[in-house]
Amino acid sequence: MKIAVLAVQGAFAEHIARIRALGADCVELRQRADVEQHFDGLILPGGESTVQGKMLRDLHMFGPLRDKIAQGLPVLGTCAGLILLAEQISNDERRAYFRTLPVRVCRNAYGRQLGSFHTVETVAGIGSVPMTFIRAPYIESTRPGVEILASVDDKIVAVRYGNQIGTAFHPELDADDRMHGMFLDLC
């Protein structure tokens, strides 16, 4: 199994280490030619969504990746990756990206770095999962068909819709590989 990780900016190395530890191969997506190979799943890592979104377009990866996701390629988007997938960004409407995940997210929803936090909460189908939120978004609302996987203080922080999983937290930063396991099960 081969998993592609968007590697234009952010914490992609952490995802790659996690996926390799689970026994799958990884490729980095840095430019158009990388997108043209075959892969079985896609990870959109944490980082700055404004940078990643711009690089996707400047490096001509946006269209082909959007088509693959729309056609059912399994994808895991964490933090910035969730923002890239979201249909709507409530506090930054002019900057929506793939729009394949029918949810509305709020960027930097917990404020600046002083609002970053760590907690443990239940994820449907997994159990208690450590969660690290770094200048994180949360999901304000979902459309029908979106399964809510986890909430923290009544805010939605993880969802699944078909083959797309989006988390507001960073499963790549904690020593728990079950979110990645859930994603690999889709691939």
Binding site: V8, Q9, H118
Partner: peptide, 18 residues
Amino acid sequence: EERYTLNKQLAQMLKGGV
């Protein structure tokens, strides 16, 4: 210790950037 970890992790999110 938890705050320090979160602060190191913000730097991780900046990697590969300018």
